[in-house]
């Protein structure tokens, strides 16, 4: 049963990520990102992290994806023009073959580098017995205000700063 959930979530994640990478339409990329994030939430559930999965759903689905879609709309929609306002022809918005080749090459180089560094560690890890995580909510709540209270407070300040900063930056000003 767990395997079925795992396979479905993994497929959602992988195909979502691949489609975010390959689609030519920003709006579609946002929708694929949504499926990818739902898949990651499913993976969290298979790992027994129910609170993290619920946070992923609440923050990403309700917040980040809607923000992204809003930003796409407020910046003129997904139609990609191939020249800027001075008439200079430039690389298309969603990339062309050249940029993709550069991106894939750098990704492969990075993957090889990471593999070279991490291969020793990955192989030596035994797939240990699965501890049963039940009632993670209480423990996480307890840990947030004891061990990790500094990070908790810093993140609250960070969110306040982000709120004020975003409001000030995006505020329409006269005489731009």
């Amino acid at each position: 049963m767990d395997n079925v959930i795992f396979i479905i979530s993994a497929l959602l994640t992988v195909t979502g990520a691949l489609c975010v990478l390959l689609t030519k339409n920003v709006m579609h990329a946002c929708v694929y990102l949504l499926t990818c994030l739902l898949g990651v939430a499913g993976l969290y559930v298979t790992l027994g992290a129910d609170f993290v999965a619920a946070t992923q759903l609440a923050v990403y689905v309700g917040g980040v994806v809607i923000l992204m879609v809003f930003a796409v709309m407020l910046t003129g929609g997904p139609t990609s023009q191939s020249s800027n306002k001075f008439g200079i022809v430039k690389v298309p918005m969603m990339g062309n073959a050249k940029t993709y080749i550069i991106g894939i090459i750098s990704a492969v180089i990075f993957a090889l580098m990471a593999y070279k560094v991490l291969s020793r560690i990955i192989i030596s890890i035994q797939a240990g017995e699965l501890p049963a995580f039940t009632e993670t909510v209480e423990k996480i709540g307890f840990m947030l205000v004891t061990d990790h209270v500094l990070a908790f407070e810093i993140s609250s300040v960070l969110l306040l700063g982000a709120l004020v900063g975003a409001a000030i930056i995006a505020r329409p000003r006269r005489g731009v």
């Binding site: 969290y44 992290a49 609170f51 993290v52 946070t55 992923q56 923050v59 990403y60 917040g63 980040v64 923000l67 992204m68 809003f70 930003a71 993670t136 996480i140 840990m143 947030l144 061990d147 990790h148 990070a151 993140s155 960070l158 969110l159 700063g161 982000a162 709120l163 900063g165 975003a166 409001a167 930056i169 995006a170």
Partner: peptide, 20 residues
């Protein structure tokens, strides 16, 4: 389980400011 929570918080803040 704590780290992903902070990562999600940072991602939300980053998305808000970045999109602004």
């Amino acid at each position: 389980h704590i780290f992903p929570l902070f990562i999600i918080i940072v991602a939300a803040a980053e998305a808000a400011v970045g999109l602004a």
